[in-house]
Design a protein around this nucleic acid. Structure first.
Lengths: 150, 150
DNA sequence: TTATTATTATTGCAAATGCAACAAAATCAT
DNA sequence: ATGATTTTGTTGCATTTGCAATAATAATAA
């Protein structure tokens, strides 16, 4: 029964591929929309939390965020209490792109859920959240170098 | 309700990240396990179909497959009927790696499905397949340059 | 048959990705 | 308070990724 993660992988790559193509129109390069939406939704979030939210490597997140800043979609602000962290905020340009991204994502979602009843949609979402919570434990451990036994 | 594709993205990236770390032990670099398992399961498959199965760009598949061949996991054979295609087959080395990959994938699957009843697992799989079939239509269209309206 | 289109594979480029190593600040333990 | 550990961010390097363009064969149409 290794098929579940395959289906998830297929869906994820397909959706991501579609989004990356469609968001070129916003001058967003590969993957950047992932970070931008979350910064719009969680202003003042820091890099580390964002990487954790998205499930990418710290270094990858750092570079995607830097590029978003260079291109004027977000700003990074130092915190006077904690000198280590840099809080992330959308600029007007970022906020302008936001609805477009949401609209596209919502559409993709609707396509994916075509033919689903309301109950099926709800059930699907709940199952996905449970699976995600299950797997993120292992992800963090493996990332930290812990070996899984199986 | 754009949350469903987010959950799928999170799970997919987390699982993929775990697999990539764990398969370094087999001398498989990033993503290669995806191709190798499918070649083991579908010997004589061609590159184009494999890219379609996995939902990656043709060029990406071509390079991953080339590398699998260079490292001795698979072989490419010319077809005498159709000079365009190259059929893919696992070598002994590839076949040896196969059970390890399956074991790892199965374990990840079990972790993801922790706490799921048999019915929930079955339901989850069916919903995933339906979503995947829905979205792959759009994926192919967008890849071919067709614009979606929303 | 010949011309057009579709399929399959490859390569050049530019860019993203991630591991590893590092640094600095914050938190925790003793 | 001091030292150890964790958190957060960065950079070097090697690798993967994908769009676009190209080529060659196969399939379809005229």
């Amino acid at each position: 029964m290794a098929e579940i993660l395959r289906e998830i992988g297929m869906i994820s790559r397909a959706l991501d591929s579609i989004s990356n193509i469609e968001f070129k129109e916003l001058d967003l390069t590969k993957g950047q929309y992932l970070y931008l939406v979350r910064i719009c939704e969680n202003p003042s979030i820091i890099q580390e939390k964002l990487a954790d939210l998205i499930k990418v490597d710290r270094a990858t997140a750092a570079r995607a965020i830097r590029k978003l800043e260079i291109n004027g979609f977000i700003v990074r602000k130092n915190d006077e209490e904690n000198k280590k962290i840099k809080k992330l905020y959308p600029t007007n340009k970022g906020l302008n792109a936001f609805p477009f991204i949401i609209r596209e994502n919502t559409h993709s979602n609707q396509v994916a859920l075509g033919g689903f009843t309301q109950e099926e949609t709800e059930m699907f979402y709940q199952l996905l959240c449970r699976a995600r919570r299950n797997i993120e434990v292992d992800w963090k451990n493996v990332k930290k170098g812990k070996k899984r036994v199986y």
